[in-house]
Design a binder for these strands. Structure first.
Lengths: 160, 160
DNA sequence: CTTGAAATCGCAAGCTT
DNA sequence: AAGCTTGCGATTTCAAG
């Protein structure tokens, strides 16, 4: 279903460049990689078709939008059954404060990445949207001091 | 430094649309928002200039790149001093397996989001890059069953 | 902010290897 | 089958009102 794709050096070079700047033109890609622009077009179209490229995302600074504080919330959902966790996931994803949601192994079932205006806002969010809910057994809040993106995502060095 | 920006309804509308699809053309943006395409261009350029828009990122499927397993590693770095954590952060960010890195409050200093080929690869990563390092006092590994992106990031409802 | 025109880009068709 | 070149329509971009 999500099997590893067969990618050559040109594909990987294109992926590396587009992960740095997804708006690089085919002409510039072509110049950098050393092929014709239409070849880049074909390669990118193929990468989209086979699902390697999922889409283009705008990166936005939460602080500039008045959400200067970010935090990670570890949440235990009990009982951990499908009829409870489906609605829980939908509700959390719909919160304007939510940035990302993970379902994890371990004692804490979910990790929620949130962006809020201040600590009072964070307290309100935790109390009103989490601890006050029947299915939420426990919430642990950790503030994010700083966060970093890492290098472009590429196949393991052994390749293919 | 990262003060909240002053955005009007047009800016917010554009941000919402671009977060749904960062490749929406200025022409389509204009039609949707109800202004001229060049106005959209000006607005987006301004949003970039003032730092609200940080860039355009390609979303890629890790599984299709042979990284079918993702995990979160909670890491204690001891002693937690600048001369140790600087190199630690640089080293972790440079790992091809790293997707994101967070510096957090609480007993676990760092959270590392990684994508690996399989559990053996994960074990190798944890042993060779984390627990074997002097400054790493403890590592806790949690697998990611599933993850979700959330809605577009926008200012709090009360805002401007 | 809009209009309008020029430059650039995306994209498909045809050609070559 | 894969890549290159060409050309047209769409888009971006800029100057002027």
């Amino acid at each position: 279903m999500a099997d590893s794709a067969v990618l050559d050096a040109v594909d990987l070079h294109i992926l590396r460049l587009l992960q740095n700047d997804a708006r690089t033109t085919y002409r510039d890609l072509a110049a950098e990689v050393g092929v014709a622009p239409s070849t880049c077009l074909d390669r990118v179209a193929r990468l989209r078709r086979i699902g390697v490229i999922l889409g283009h995302q705008l990166r936005v600074d939460p602080a500039k939008l008045g959400r200067g504080i970010e935090a990670l919330l570890s949440v235990q959902v009990r009982p951990h059954r499908r009829e409870l966790i489906g609605p829980f996931v939908d509700r959390i994803r719909a919160l304007p404060e939510s940035r990302a949601l993970f379902h994890l192994t371990g004692p804490d079932d979910y990790l929620v990445h949130v962006a809020v205006t201040d600590t009072a806002d964070l307290q309100r969010l935790v109390l009103d949207e989490f601890t006050s809910q029947r299915e939420v057994a426990r919430v642990e809040t950790r503030l994010i001091f700083q966060q970093w993106d890492c290098g472009p995502l590429l196949p393991p060095a052994s390749g293919r």
